[in-house]
Measured scan of single mutants.
Amino acid sequence: MLDDRARMEAAKKEKVEQILAEFQLQEEDLKKVMRRMQKEMDRGLRLETHEEASVKMLPTYVRSTPEGSEVGDFLSLDLGGTNFRVMLVKVGEGEEGQWSVKTKHQMYSIPEDAMTGTAEMLFDYISECISDFLDKHQMKHKKLPLGFTFSFPVRHEDIDKGILLNWTKGFKASGAEGNNVVGLLRDAIKRRGDFEMDVVAMVNDTVATMISCYYEDHQCEVGMIVGTGCNACYMEEMQNVELVEGDEGRMCVNTEWGAFGDSGELDEFLLEYDRLVDESSANPGQQLYEKLIGGKYMGELVRLVLLRLVDENLLFHGEASEQLRTRGAFETRFVSQVESDTGDRKQIYNILSTLGLRPSTTDCDIVRRACESVSTRAAHMCSAGLAGVINRMRESRSEDVMRITVGVDGSVYKLHPSFKERFHASVRRLTPSCEITFIESEEGSGRGAALVSAVACKKACMLGQ
């Protein structure tokens, strides 16, 4: 009897593995994704193909990295998701002549009506938060230079001027797309009239992360975010950046690689679950690469896999709870928690219980395998993109072996128990001629924006502006 049951459990697990095998990517698959990513990057950089390229390769006008001589107080704003952060950054000489960066910050959550109302409502709310922060720190009387981390696709015309191309991540505030974001912020500050600010720089969160990590390690020339969304930036040779005049030196390019796949480059790798996630998203047909990796989508992918296993009578005796059938019910943090389970399955059992399920031991094991399959594919897909960037940098610099540091931020990278190990191992397999160091950014977005502002202020002083 026991043997029969054991055989049935083994057969069930084997069927589960057959279904989950769809998520496995072979090294040849990853090399294919990497080569296609490089081709799209090239198209994004070139003037004649930029418009139709899915990977936009947006110039950021960040050319210099901090040298350690900029000092002063800077205000930093960070808008990239449902939370908005205001930070005071003091850049100065530390002990023994070292450079020191001290920060104080406060988080504000953005109400739904500000995210989806008008641009005026959104930026009025942001300036209200700045006003509140300055009151708390008794700094209303000071006109501070301000660095703005704005983590949406922007076409820069200068370091302090950028046109919002399109909202992502659930934002829909009308009247912002096609307009200068810094102008919208300046107008809102003017409307309030109770404080003055000098907006000197606007950067993407990947750029802010790279600059913040450069402060720790001067070989950091790539910034990457794996959180709600997924994106990367890197220092490109100016001669390859056709959208900006000049051939000397390097400029940081914001790849906006989340949109890779929007022209069909990933079609052969998309599964039924991916198509369902895409169809029910706020932007169907867009940001397809990001939807395979980002935390906004990972939990939902797992939920759809679990429903398939229920329908195949391989999980929960073929019956799903009402909660499990509800879109968004299986949160991405559950994926991390399930994979963090120590082996007694308590954590998995508790999560499934909150979803109205009474799982068996085998159910718990199957749910864990589903989570591992989805998150491992995410790590491997992400590795193909980064390997594409790094191999490109090595080739354009004609280096036999390139040493490089990548600064990384984002909740999936930082909080998932195995993502970074799987990701690092896969990147290294795909970049055999590179020695890569990964560092995690601390308060990256805010500190990085302030350091970019410090560079901009120093330049302005040198130019006598």
Rank of each mutant, 00 (worst) to 15 (best):
L2M: 08
D3Q: 12
A6G: 12
A6F: 11
R7N: 13
R7W: 07
M8V: 07
M8Q: 13
E9W: 13
E9M: 14
K12M: 15
V16K: 11
V16F: 08
E17K: 05
I19N: 15
L20T: 08
A21Y: 11
L25I: 10
Q26L: 12
E27N: 02
E28P: 14
E28C: 08
V33P: 04
M41P: 04
M41V: 05
R43I: 08
E51V: 08
A53R: 05
A53K: 08
A53G: 01
K56E: 06
M57F: 01
M57Y: 01
P59N: 05
Y61M: 02
V62P: 00
R63Q: 14
P66M: 14
E67I: 15
S69V: 13
E70R: 07
V71E: 15
V71F: 15
G72Y: 01
F74D: 11
L75C: 11
S76I: 02
D78S: 01
D78G: 01
G81E: 00
G81V: 01
F84W: 04
K90W: 13
E93Q: 09
E96N: 12
W99N: 15
S100G: 11
T103W: 06
T103V: 02
T103R: 05
K104C: 11
K104R: 10
H105W: 10
Y108A: 03
D113V: 11
A114M: 14
A114F: 11
A114G: 05
T116K: 07
G117D: 06
E120R: 07
M121W: 07
L122I: 07
I126C: 01
S131K: 04
D132M: 09
D132K: 12
L134K: 02
H137P: 07
Q138S: 12
Q138Y: 05
Q138K: 08
M139V: 08
K140T: 06
H141R: 05
L144S: 11
L146F: 07
S151F: 00
S151V: 07
P153H: 03
R155V: 05
L164P: 01
N166M: 12
T168R: 06
K169S: 02
K169L: 01
G170Y: 03
G170E: 02
F171I: 05
K172T: 07
A173Q: 02
G175H: 04
V181N: 04
G183I: 00
G183F: 01
A188R: 02
K190D: 05
K190M: 08
R192P: 06
G193E: 09
D194S: 11
E196K: 10
M197S: 11
M197D: 00
M197A: 15
D198R: 14
N204R: 00
D205K: 05
V207Y: 05
T209M: 11
T209Q: 00
M210T: 00
M210F: 04
M210S: 02
S212F: 04
S212M: 03
C213P: 15
C220W: 00
E221A: 11
E221K: 12
G223L: 00
G223M: 01
M224I: 07
I225L: 02
T228D: 01
G229N: 02
G229M: 00
C230D: 00
N231A: 02
C233K: 01
C233T: 03
M235V: 13
E237F: 10
E242S: 09
E245G: 13
V253P: 01
G258S: 11
A259C: 02
A259H: 10
S263N: 10
L266H: 13
F269K: 11
F269H: 14
L270R: 13
L271F: 03
E272F: 05
Y273G: 10
V277Y: 04
E279Y: 15
E279F: 12
E279Q: 12
E279K: 15
S281W: 03
S281F: 09
A282F: 12
A282V: 13
N283P: 03
N283G: 11
Q286A: 13
Q287A: 00
L288S: 14
L288A: 08
I293C: 00
G294N: 00
E300M: 06
R303Y: 04
R303M: 06
L304G: 08
V305P: 12
L306D: 01
L307D: 15
V310Q: 10
N313T: 08
L314R: 13
H317F: 14
L324N: 05
L324W: 10
R325K: 13
R327I: 12
G328I: 14
G328V: 12
A329E: 09
F330H: 04
T332P: 03
R333I: 13
F334I: 06
V335W: 03
V338Q: 04
T342V: 13
G343C: 06
D344V: 07
K346M: 09
K346E: 11
I348N: 04
I351D: 11
L352S: 09
G356R: 10
L357C: 07
L357Y: 08
P359H: 04
S360A: 12
T361F: 09
T362D: 13
T362N: 11
D363V: 01
D363P: 02
D365R: 12
V367Y: 05
V367Q: 00
R369D: 09
R369W: 10
C371L: 02
E372F: 12
V374T: 04
T376W: 10
R377C: 06
A378Q: 08
A379G: 07
A379Y: 00
C382K: 00
C382S: 07
C382Q: 02
A387C: 08
V389E: 04
I390Y: 00
N391C: 08
M393F: 12
E395R: 11
R397P: 08
S398Q: 07
E399M: 11
E399L: 10
D400I: 14
D400V: 12
V401G: 11
R403D: 14
R403Y: 10
I404E: 05
V412I: 04
K414G: 10
L415Y: 12
K420W: 05
A425M: 11
R428S: 12
R428T: 13
R428L: 10
T431M: 15
P432E: 08
P432D: 15
S433L: 12
C434L: 10
C434G: 08
E442A: 09
E442K: 14
R447S: 02
G448D: 04
A449W: 00
A449P: 02
L451H: 01
V452P: 02
V455T: 12
A456T: 15
K458W: 07
L463C: 09
L463I: 10
L463T: 12
Q465G: 14
